[in-house]
Design a protein around this nucleic acid. Structure first.
Length: 474
RNA sequence: GGCGGGGUAGCCAAGUGGUAAGGCAGGGCUCUGCAAAAGCCCCAUCCGUCGGUUCGAUUCCGACCCUCGCCUCCA
């Protein structure tokens, strides 16, 4: 059995396979950030999911092409640009680099492509042009270009593949901006927004005059541009199901670039929302955490990533400080076990040995079931207890320790949670630890405790083992 | 109102038509000069409520309560 994933398109669990069943290559696209501000922990749940799924696919023998777009032009950004007097690029550059820094802090692999919307205008214009040629896009009185859902459906396409929309019941909401009065139908959406005075310098030339792309079209243009008109996997937060992803399908399939019978995307994966301290994250509740807030509070990216990867991606997850503290303890336990294994394995720890199969097989079986990370962690911790037991009774030889360590190294890399390399113990600390040992042997416990405090001040925790002292960071 | 997720121990969170994984927290013990780490043991007669189906339901069905999300800003 291989990996099964829930597909929003069919609303059921499906065996995962690429569009080309003979291929071991997966082309995946994840809707990236809108860089108008620092990204929050909820945003990162989705990006960590994408990264984890990519790593898991690679572990399961696929190669991947991972694309994540950067939305660097949209209403909020334009407003901020106007307010701050910055240029578009100087404004977004700050948040883009902050985002990429945060993304790395969570140990997410860099996507193979990170296209920016503003650098994809030619492809966007071309795609809109094609929709216009096919009669699916129309130019309205306000100069903007809209997508006609009626025409789209008239061409034999279905609108509402991901989300059961009732077009009859759609009524203009309060949030529909006044510049969209010109649409033929409420559900129609903007492909190209005509330039308005508030846009300032933010505009591009196009066959429809000056303006800028609508929100949905950039993803269609960038994903198809880099991955082809049909690709395997598309991810995003659950709130993007409608309208964003639905509209992406409409635009992409409306352009008719796919081979007969091929969909725009085979498999849609959506991550559920995060609650923070039991409530929906909101600035007024004071539970709005950006990644930077959490790092500033002393939590590591690794701890945050671990916590995000303890719950199933399709369930809403309650992200709490208490959980973060628990993540810290759990990781320490994992790291401690690995450290002991490395000690026993000795030189074999870094040698090429076959990973112990039991742990990997058990976790693979769990993760194959729609990425059941919780069940996989249960396997891991059962293994940790088992391993510690052998470690405690001294029944683990170097070879077996090396194999066990290799298994954990492999698995922790799949989770993106490999421990950071241990830092060298400085000479000064070693000397203090030796002195302390001497004091202990002389039963001078007062001095021994004083030395322990000194070591702690230097950032080292000392543990006494049958083989002498052991120093651990922090 | 429409649609879709959830409600499992102090907290987080899996799972199953046959009687409840795992993590964190907590308690006891072993080890230790004291610790730390590790090990051992304990910690849900019960899975939102009420009915139904069944030999048997937390797991299936129905109703109800609560909660979260989406319904054109939104991961």
């Amino acid at each position: 059995m291989g990996l099964s994933l829930y597909n929003t398109l069919s609303r059921q669990l499906e065996p995962f396979s690429p569009l080309d069943p003979t291929s071991k290559h997966v082309r995946m696209y994840c809707c990236g950030p809108t860089i108008h501000d620092y990204a929050h922990i909820g945003n990162f749940r989705t990006f960590v999911l994408a990264d984890f799924l990519r790593r898991y696919l690679e572990f399961r023998g696929y190669t991947t092409t991972h694309v994540m777009n950067i939305t660097d032009v949209e209403d909020k950004i334009i407003r901020r640009v106007r307010e701050t007097g910055a240029t578009l690029r100087t404004y977004t550059a700050v948040y883009e680099s902050a985002f990429l820094e945060d993304h790395r802090a969570l140990n997410c692999l860099a996507p193979h492509h990170l296209p920016r919307a503003t650098e994809s205008i030619p492809g966007i214009v071309e795609l809109i042009g094609r929709l216009e040629q096919r009669g699916i896009a129309y130019r309205a009185g306000d100069g903007s270009v809209y997508f006609s859902i009626t025409k789209y459906c008239g061409c034999g396409h279905r609108y509402g593949q991901l989300f059961p929309v009732n077009l009859e019941e759609m009524r203009p909401g309060e949030r529909v901006s006044s510049d969209e009065y010109a649409k033929e139908s409420v559900a129609d959406f903007a492909l190209w927004k005509a330039r308005v005075p508030e846009d300032g310098d933010v505009f591009w030339e196009s066959p429809w005059g000056q303006g800028r792309p609508g929100w949905h079209i950039e993803c269609s243009a960038m994903s198809m541009g880099l991955l082809g008109p049909s690709f395997d996997l598309h991810l995003g937060g659950e709130d993007l199901v409608f309208p964003h992803h639905e509209d992406e399908i409409a635009q992409s399939e409306g352009a008719g670039l796919q081979s007969a019978g091929q969909p725009f995307v085979k498999h849609w994966v959506h991550g559920a929302f995060l609650l923070v301290e039991g409530r929906k994250m909101s600035k007024s509740l004071g539970n709005y955490y950006t990644l930077r807030d959490l790092l500033a509070r002393g939590f590591s990216g690794r701890e945050i990533r671990y916590l995000l990867l303890t719950a199933h991606y399709r369930d809403s997850f309650n992200f709490t400080t208490e959980g973060l503290l628990g993540a810290r303890t759990a990781l320490e336990r994992l790291d401690e076990c690995a450290r002991k294994l490395a000690e026993i394995a000795g030189p074999l720890a870094t040698a090429e040995v076959a990973p112990q199969a039991a742990l990997l097989d058990a976790c693979t079986a769990r993760l194959d079931e729609d990425l059941n990370v919780s069940a996989a962690w249960a396997e891991v911790f059962d293994w940790v207890r088992e391993t510690n037991r052998k470690l405690a009774t001294g029944t683990l030889g170097p070879e077996h320790a090396a194999e066990a360590l290799a298994a954990w190294n492999t698995l922790s890399a799949v989770f993106g949670l490999r421990p950071p390399p241990g830092s060298e113990v400085p000479e000064a600390a070693r000397r203090l630890a030796d002195e302390r040992d001497a004091a202990r042997k002389a039963k001078d416990f007062k001095r021994s405790d004083a030395l322990r405090a000194e070591l702690l001040a230097l950032g080292w925790t000392v543990e006494d083992t049958p083989k002498g002292w052991k120093l651990k960071p922090r």
